[in-house]
Each structure stands twice: as C-alpha cells, then as structure tokens.
Design a protein around this nucleic acid. Structure first.
Lengths: 239, 239
DNA sequence: AAAAGTAGTTGAGCTATATCAAGTTTTTGA
DNA sequence: TCAAAAACTTGATATAGCTCAACTACTTTT
C-alpha cells in the first residue's frame, strides 16, 4: 500500500520510522483515465501529488479558449508545487493517458517538515528545480525556432526516460501533436512538418506517437541553443 | 543595520527574539552600480538575496550570445530561489541601476527553518509564487502578440509599483528597450514601435524611460489574454 | 562643449511560421 | 466491423514581427 515515494519521488535518507511517518500521510488515488482532471483551476487546494505511472499535463486557459500547457508530468515527478500557498489551484491538471498518482495532503506534509528536515529539503529542491526548468522553457519559447523547440523536447524526454530506467532512444509520446504545439508555442501543422523533416533527415523515426531517436548527436546539436541545461541532458542520454 | 526584511520582503509574524535571529544572519552588501553582477552563472552558490532598492535582471546566455532575461527583480523581492539546491548559480544576475541588496547566506537560513516555521512557510510561498509567475510568463511568450506582451509588462510593473506604495500610473523603466525585448521575446524595433503605437492611441505617454499610463482600462484590455493573473493585476492597479 | 559612443526610432523588405484548406490516417464507439 | 469523429499530414497563401539600414537623440568622456 506504500507509494515508495521515499525511493522514487523523494530520494531521502530516512530511517524506517521516518519512512513510516511519511507513508502514513500518503493516499493512493484511484487511477485516472485519459482526459480525467486531477484538479481544475479554482478547485480548493488541499494536496500535492506524485505521479506513479502514466503522465499528466498542467495548463492555463486563455480568454479566447486557447490552452497553454505549462508542465508535462512524468512518473516520480511532483504536481502542484505552484499551489502550496493558494486557497485554490491556479491551473488545471489532466491525465494524458491512464495515470496513477499518490496524493499528499499538504497540511500533513507541512507538519512533517519540522520532524523530517531531509523531507523539507527535498521539497525545496523539487521547487528549485522546477524554477530552473521554467527558465529554460522561457528560453525555448522566446529564442528557439521550430526545429530547435521540437529537438529540445525530444532530448528532454529522452533524458527523463533514461533517468527512470527506460530506453532513451525509443519511447511513446503521451501528448498529441496539438498538445506538443501548445507546449512549445507552435501550430500543430508546424510540429507535424518538423517531425516529417527530422524523419527525412534520419534523425528520428516516427510511427504515430512512437518515437525512435536514430541520430542522437544531430538531435542534440539542433536542440543545443544554450550551454547549461542541455549539458545536463547530454550527460543523461549520452550512450 | 537591520534590513527590515521582516516587514518588507518576508511579512512574518515573529516576536522580537525571532526577528533578532533572522536579522543576525542577514548581511548588508555594498550597493551595486548599474551593470555590476550580483553573481554570475557558475559562481559558487552561498546566498539568496533580497532587493532593498533599485532593480536587477536575471538572465541566461544562449550559445550564440543572445541573452534571455528570465526575471526582473524589484525591491522586496527575493533573488536566487532557483539555485538553493545547486553548488553554483545556474543563471547570472546583474544590476539594472544602482541597487542595494541584503545577503542571506542560505545555510544559515536553512538552520532557522526548524526554529522558525513561519519563516520556512514564507520562503515556500515565495517559491510557489515565482512558479506561478513563470507559468504566466510562458503563456505570454507563447500566446501573446507584441502589443499584448508590452501591455502585460506595463500592467504588471504598474501593479508591482502600486503594491509597494508608488504610483501605478507614472514610473521609470529600469530596462532598456533592448532588455524589454529580451524579456518579452521581441526585437528592439518591435518594442519601440509598440511604444509609439500606444502613444498615438493615447494609452501611455513615454519620455525615454519614464512611462505614464494614460488609459489604464485600455491597457488592461490589451494585456488581458487570460483570466487568472491579470485579474490579480486588475485589482492591484484598479483606481 | 565637442566628439564619440550608445540607445532609440522609423522605414522597407524578407522570412519563419501561422492560417486556411483539403486530404489521409487513426481512433472511437455503436 | 463499420461509420463517424478526431488526429494528423501536406500544400498554398498570408502576415506578424524580424532583419537590415539609415537617421536621431541621448550620454559619457575628455
């Protein structure tokens, strides 16, 4: 019944008693089906979540009904850190496929911060990392062209899959072309065209949502507009 | 010699003894001149900072030498929250004008978290807010056009000045047109043209870096692509 | 106070990507 | 398993904003 958060999402050095304290507050939620909301903008904020399996997108709706995806959440990642001082969630989060999550009621988590300083540090660390990722996303959105954006996304996904023990070369996109466009600030058609172009350049092989990275170096070269974060990705997916 | 952080940057309900504990770890840094770095990407991370007066920009450099501004820091705001689990700063931060800051050595701050849970919550809250601001920035960068971007920036600055007791209608931009472009993902020329257009529409009056907002409603209307954050701004600068 | 540099503005033309349109493939669900 | 809908692809065209260029107005230096 434990979520094994301690090893997967929050790699902590806790003793058994401490792990037990943490596990006690964690609830297992029923699996979400594709399209189900984990929460909607405006819902009362009570909990943060850790993704166990599947994937989620967080998004804001603009007045004219367009959706801006702000996060793609994969297993072991935390959802809702941007809400912890709000009465209600400022964004919506929905499942991209069948997805299971652990629910961590935030008031309970908060009570543990004093007793478990390592846990507290870990949450600080997750938030700080999300801030860094956001800055990279801003760079991507404002300075990269369509090819660089798509290459960056694929390199980033590859690194994240690798970190969790999956192949960095072959994986399945849980986002539609439309959602990729929304995430990267591109029209669907442009995403589609870049995929076609990358295929004809033998950089990737695409079959619907299945992606195979055929030429990692070339992909990284295209993605590589800035030194810092891509350097991390490079290490992560280096053969 | 105190930074009065307790009232300005971190509105806490601490008793005198607690305030004293916090003040003890805070160092006053010598004022930075325009263009001075507070820290550079790669410098050892030791401290976060609170802006006392003036303003700073945080930025990433791309491989081809372009700079992406990721934050504009005004007085009472914290700098460096995206670095707290890093050995070295992942970005650079430099003064846009003569600027004074308080230095808060992070290891000392961390030691206070257990004794002062309110302080800890306050830092969590600042990070969470920065995450929300980042998501709004992503929306701006990927969905807004040039006019909406500039209007959003002006509305946002207006709200931030108002919150600190300054006029929400007349203020001075500390960023150059070039920096505004870098921040908003626009070319300098486009920023300049939008300023000219807004002037001819009598929405603002511009004199170099001095801005006067002449038609707040119109400005908000143009900025207003999404409900959530602009709603906050609206309240803040509503006459 | 002149000179030299830097920042800002304005215009003209170009280009990357959006938009529109039409077709194809995949998914869904009755 | 077939029909309808949704997702994806490809082509043609439009356009917002970029780039290049020239000019003007500040700032800084000496």
């Amino acid at each position: 019944m434990t979520c094994s958060l301690s090893s997967l999402c929050l790699p902590l050095s806790l003793n058994l008693e401490e792990i037990d304290k943490l596990d006690k507050i964690i609830k297992r939620r029923q699996a979400l089906k594709k399209g189900d909301h984990l929460f909607r903008q405006g819902d009362n904020f009570e909990s943060i979540y850790a993704v166990r399996s599947g994937s989620l997108k967080s998004y804001i709706m603009t007045n004219n009904g367009e959706e801006q995806i702000t996060n793609l959440h994969l297993p072991s990642e935390l959802v809702g850190l941007d809400s912890i001082d709000c009465k209600s969630y400022p964004i919506s989060t929905k499942a991209l496929e069948t997805t299971s999550v652990c629910e961590i009621p935030y008031s309970n988590l908060q009570e543990l911060y004093t007793k478990l300083p390592d846990l507290r540090s870990q949450i600080f660390s997750c938030m700080s990392k999300e801030l860094r990722d956001d800055k990279q996303m801003m760079l991507l959105l404002s300075k990269k062209n369509a090819e660089e954006k798509v290459a960056s996304l694929l390199a980033n996904l590859s690194a994240r899959f690798k970190r969790r023990g999956y192949s960095p070369y072959t994986f399945r996109l849980s986002m539609s072309r439309n959602e990729i466009g929304s995430y990267l600030g591109l029209a669907v058609e442009t995403v589609s065209r870049v995929f076609t172009r990358f295929q004809s350049m033998d950089i990737i092989a695409v079959n619907g949502k299945e992606i195979h990275i055929a030429n990692k170096n070339q992909l990284l070269k295209i993605a590589d507009l800035n030194d810092y974060l891509v350097a991390i990705d490079k290490k992560s997916i280096a053969s």
